[in-house]
Design a protein around this nucleic acid. Structure first.
Length: 201
DNA sequence: TAAACGATTAGCT
DNA sequence: GCTAATCGTTTAT
């Protein structure tokens, strides 16, 4: 059984690079589906971040990023992958945290089924942003949804506050070198394993 | 209206 | 390591 305090919107009402490290170790949970520990996220900032979708102002796609803290911003990547973002900052400020990898907890059968995987393939079920979206059964209708018991998608805090490591973001061009990717060091559920020779500490 | 482009993944060499 | 798959959004004619 999974338990913890449900994070309320105020948790997200601050800069994304402040929210992101605090999310590592929290539990992303979808009622009736399952969930797991957040082990890898990336922050996207409203100012000075060319990789942020809202970098050039509001468009129909990125409108959710300007929404209230705790809003869900979902978009289609490469025409086939659903990527999940959690909106930060007060309404009107475009910032979000991209969920890139999760370590499954509890009953993983639903997550596996959504991904079309067998019971021995747990490590591939939520290790990557596109995989997370598919495993959690998300689609574009989730855009503009709000985290909480009403939508069924919540972030839980069970009191664990692990040490967090910061690295450069993955897969983005301009602005990718910014140190805005936050990971749980040593986790075997990262979207990319640590580079060989990278500091282990 | 047309064309280019991804905050990726799976499968093959 | 390399590339096809695949389509909504954005930007350029």
């Amino acid at each position: 059984m999974i338990s913890g305090r449900v994070l309320d919107p105020s948790f997200f009402a601050r800069p994304a690079d402040s929210v992101a490290p605090d999310l590592i170790g929290k539990i992303l949970w979808r009622e009736g589906v399952g969930g797991g520990r957040l082990v890898e996220v990336e922050a996207y900032l409203p100012e000075g971040d060319p990789a942020c979708h809202a970098h050039r102002g509001m468009t129909p796609r990125n409108r959710a990023m300007f929404g209230a803290p705790g809003t869900v911003y979902v978009y289609l990547s490469y025409g086939l992958h659903v990527l999940l973002n959690l909106v930060c900052e007060p309404e009107g400020v475009a910032a979000a945290v991209l969920v890139r990898a999760v370590e499954p907890l509890g009953d993983v059968s639903m997550l596996l089924a959504n991904r079309g995987l067998g019971p021995r393939e747990v490590r591939a079920v939520t290790t990557g942003p596109g995989r997370v979206g598919q495993a959690f059964g998300l689609d574009l209708t989730w855009n503009h949804a709000v985290l909480g018991t009403e939508s069924g998608l919540v972030v839980l805090d069970d009191g664990w506050a692990p040490r967090v490591e910061v690295t450069g973001r993955i897969g983005v061009g301009s602005g990718g070198d910014l140190a805005l990717r936050y990971i749980l060091p040593g986790s075997t559920y990262l979207s990319r394993p640590p580079r060989r020779g990278a500091p282990l500490a």
